[in-house]
Design a protein around this nucleic acid. Structure first.
Ligand SMILES: [Mn+2]
Ligand SMILES: [Mn+2]
Ligand SMILES: [Mn+2]
Ligand SMILES: [Mn+2]
Lengths: 217, 217
DNA sequence: TCCTATTTTTAGTCTTATCTAAATTTAATT
DNA sequence: AATTAAATTTAGATAAGACTAAAAATAGGA
């Protein structure tokens, strides 16, 4: 249906729309895609001709209904494969993204459907991100960032905002994983660093860390 | 490492070398790849520059050691994925080839290794073809075609030569599957058709069928 | 409003993998 | 050995997706 490159652009536009709730700029897209702005313009024109995005010169792009569906389908596959790699193939959560970037482009509706069944219809991927169902519906949850909590508040770790290997391995090293309860023992006003308690262990974390951990109260 | 197209050419050369035990001709390769001969020449030159094949103008190609290793790795992945699709995802053996054609190009050594472990190191794919191990060793078996059997001989069905959907569905329809015992009750000299017995049921099959079923005595 | 910095688009190239048409080489047949 | 047929290679073109450099549009500040 769509080329690998087209799918990657659609996915990037989808993520950027969520992030900035506005038309996605050429530069933002070129940064996300790690390409030059001129390449983005070319592709955006093509996507526009295919009615996957709404595009007006100099005004950025928005996904059309058709484009959004395509993007969500790719995201669904990406996250299902991540679950597969972690749950069935012994991968760590910091190792799966790159491979899922490849697997998300495999074309077969039955494959996606059966993978979903095989994994028992997971609702979240290893990083806590929601997996859209076959109709494209995401389950929304009112999570917030750990950095938004105040001293004395407690919550469950439910996801990561950044899912770079470096961050995920930091979490592993400090025994922070999804599902764990985190209590804010203290918060330093000067640098926003926090003293938190996890499994009875105290740990000091910088704002860079706390601003990338999603919590549910 | 190698592009999707390069991998497909290497795989095709590998299969054709097995088939004709000789240098692979440009035309044979263009037929196998479903491209024009001129495209083959271009690609073969590229593979030759990369030392993946030995090529002399007008003399056909042979895989180098390096090329053979790459081809076998792709075949290993193809067959492991086919096993996965059938064993874990409820696919029928006639539905897996196309998807495996996509999956075989996913790049991750760990993925292949873990998939192999997850499937408990299968030695054959759903069509009875051997799965090379991580070092590229194939298990050889002295199978022969059903068409080579004489009246009165019996054997176990161990593989298919043709694995088109049409043929595999014919086999399903007639309850012929790998592992089944087949007895040749009669063989018609004129058209080489056979009367065979499977699970106590008699069935008449044409030479086109019997020449595509591998048997082990 | 005007000027400048930034953003975006256009124009022209490049690479990969294809194709068609033409030229060349090899193989087969007289 | 000469001729013809078949196989193979070369030459030139195309499409996708990327790039660089230059032009054009927009936005923000004086
Ligand atoms: Mn990911
Ligand atoms: Mn993820
Ligand atoms: Mn196959
Ligand atoms: Mn197979």
């Amino acid at each position: 249906m769509f080329s690998l490159s087209e799918e990657n652009y659609l996915k990037a536009i989808f993520h950027l729309e969520r992030k900035y709730q506005a038309g996605v700029s050429t530069n933002a897209l070129s940064e996300e895609m790690d390409t030059k702005a001129s390449s983005v313009t070319d592709m955006v024109k093509k996507l526009s001709e295919k009615k996957l995005v709404k595009y007006k010169k100099y005004q950025g792009v928005k996904l059309s209904e058709k484009g959004r569906n395509a993007a969500v389908e790719v995201i669904r596959k990406h996250r299902l494969w991540e679950v597969f790699l972690v749950e069935k193939l012994n991968f760590n959560w910091d190792e799966v993204h790159e491979i899922a970037e490849q697997l998300e482009h495999i074309k077969s509706e039955k494959l996606t459907r059966e993978l979903d069944r095989f994994l028992e219809h997971p609702s979240r991927d290893p990083h806590g991100d929601p997996i859209p169902d076959a109709e494209g519906n995401f389950s929304v949850s009112n999570k917030l960032l750990l950095s938004e909590l105040e001293k004395g508040q407690e919550g469950i770790c439910v996801g990561v905002k950044d899912s770079s290997s470096d961050f995920l391995r930091y979490l592993d090293k400090n025994k922070i994983s999804l599902g764990k309860s985190i209590l804010v023992k203290d918060k330093e006003p000067f640098d926003e660093s926090m003293l938190v308690e996890i499994d009875g262990e105290k740990l000091r974390i910088s704002n860079t860390i706390s601003a990338n951990l999603y919590i549910k109260i």
